[in-house]
Design a protein around this nucleic acid. Sequence first.
DNA 1: AACTTATATAACTTGACGGTTATATAACTG
DNA 2: CAGTTATATAACCGTCAAGTTATATAAGTT
Lengths: 115, 115
Amino acid sequence: MRSSIFEVMAEPNRRRILDLLRERERSVGELVKETQLSQPGISKHLRVLREAGLVEVRQKGQKRVYHLRAEPLEEIDNWLEPYRRFWSDKLDALEKHLNVEDKHSTEAATPEKKG
Amino acid sequence: MRSSIFEVMAEPNRRRILDLLRERERSVGELVKETQLSQPGISKHLRVLREAGLVEVRQKGQKRVYHLRAEPLEEIDNWLEPYRRFWSDKLDALEKHLNVEDKHSTEAATPEKKG
DNA sequence: AACTTATATAACTTGACGGTTATATAACTG
DNA sequence: CAGTTATATAACCGTCAAGTTATATAAGTT
């Protein structure tokens, strides 16, 4: 079941799991305790995250320890990139007006920061 | 139907619509032509985007012209923020090791950029 | 006003997703 | 090996989202 990274991260519990794994790696059991999810619930989400390349497992005795692999999130970051100019300064209104016209200058037109 | 910004952007057609509106504002009819969606399909997605604050409408004669309002995307950007360090340099392996231990130093430990 | 164009909305259908319970599998323990 | 702990998977269910068709609404035209 190949889902886009956007779909994967749309699920709040999965974002929560990633947030937890960002602090430190955790076993399935720990994740169950720290969330309100059942064990199979966690396992299902972990599978989705695994298939998206966002986590990796390591066997540690009886436990399976999951850790974050954040690289795939870069795709979201990249998608976001061309939108940043719209909020980075407060020139939103201006930008929006500019891109109503657009068509001509793709360069310049970016006023210097208020400094 | 209040959806999280993540859910809103999880839908590929909605991302496409935003991408189109990023270039320039468009009427519903134009969006129908430029995507593979039916007119009601587009209208439904536009409603979701409107409710998320991601687009705004303006009446222009018979047409309704939609334009981008990117600010709500900042929430995604902010969520992403603490993950960036994991891929920003190539110190991923190191970072991952550090946060396996963690627990002690929440500060420092961040090597300076290669500059 | 009748007609046309443009868009929104309602009603319905379908499929996928997330949760649950039950069970399989695997590792460790005595 | 029997028993326990840890986790994954299967099977099932309810919900919800997205697409479709039909229709309502609104603006423009003649």
